[in-house]
Design a protein around this nucleic acid. Structure first.
Lengths: 134, 134
DNA sequence: CTTTTTGCAAATCTTTTGCACTCTA
DNA sequence: TAGAGTGCAAAAGATTTGCAAAAAG
């Protein structure tokens, strides 16, 4: 569908370090979060490099990208298949959700709308059990 | 549920001008778009004022707010009740969608997840018929 | 070697803020 | 007249970019 003049991907120390963190993290992290974690882990990587790598990974479909209400981008390694998120507006906790009903509905939209290359994402937010107490 | 220390709303020239544009516009507009339209229409309104008014309207639930992939906020007057959007990744065109299946599913998540104050939003994107030709 | 990737710092861009001043109610 | 709203210009933040130096293949 898309001819993509795919550029080679060079495995640099920085790229590996970033991969490692994404690999071992479940939730979503901002570029800045990732940068902090890299440094805390002893990896010296420029913030601009983090951004540039994330951009490539996102384009290659290797990471999911969502947006905070504040407009900040959050990333995480794509897990298995397609799914959605339940995010706590108070603490940021993210849980995965299965949404068969939504998938079916999206499929129908794709089929009947006359639009092409339909993609969908569902953001469900709320206050998680732990924050209801806190 | 939320006591809201509702502040009074004063109808200023600027507020009215902004209302007028939102009232007569179907699609989503960014704060900057709105600012440009105001000026083209001869209304001198500070960009900061546009942002400030939009923030109030959004908080009051008078406008819908969505986010561009680029992280830019887009607003428009709330139509009818709850609904979702089908946005063209190529030209930005936005259509409204009804999603009864999604509503039902969200309701169930709210009921069974243990989370509170659940809200959801669905972003469906694709290439609109007109862009498929262009 | 050739080309991608880095690292900085400077540059962009959207959105927010501080504050004195101007209006609405 | 009290206090919300306004207009600037400056401040914040996140993300991008320009470019020379470093490193991957």
């Amino acid at each position: 569908m898309t001819p993509e003049p795919t550029a080679p991907v060079r495995m640099t120390r920085q790229r590996r370090a970033l991969d490692a963190i994404l690999e071992t993290t479940d939730g979503f992290l901002s570029a800045q979060d990732l940068h902090v974690r890299l440094r805390s882990g002893g990896d010296r990587v420029a913030l601009a490099t983090v951004y540039s790598q994330l951009a490539k990974m996102a384009e290659a479909g290797e990471v999911d990208q969502i947006r905070t209400e504040a407009g900040e981008a959050l990333y995480r390694r794509c897990r298995s298949e397609h799914h959605h998120h339940l995010r706590c507006r108070s603490c940021g906790l993210v849980e995965e959700l299965d949404a068969p009903a939504v998938e079916a509905w999206a499929g129908e939209v794709a089929r009947t709308s006359g639009w092409d290359e339909i993609a969908h994402s569902v953001e469900v937010t709320g206050i998680c059990p732990s924050c209801q107490r806190g």
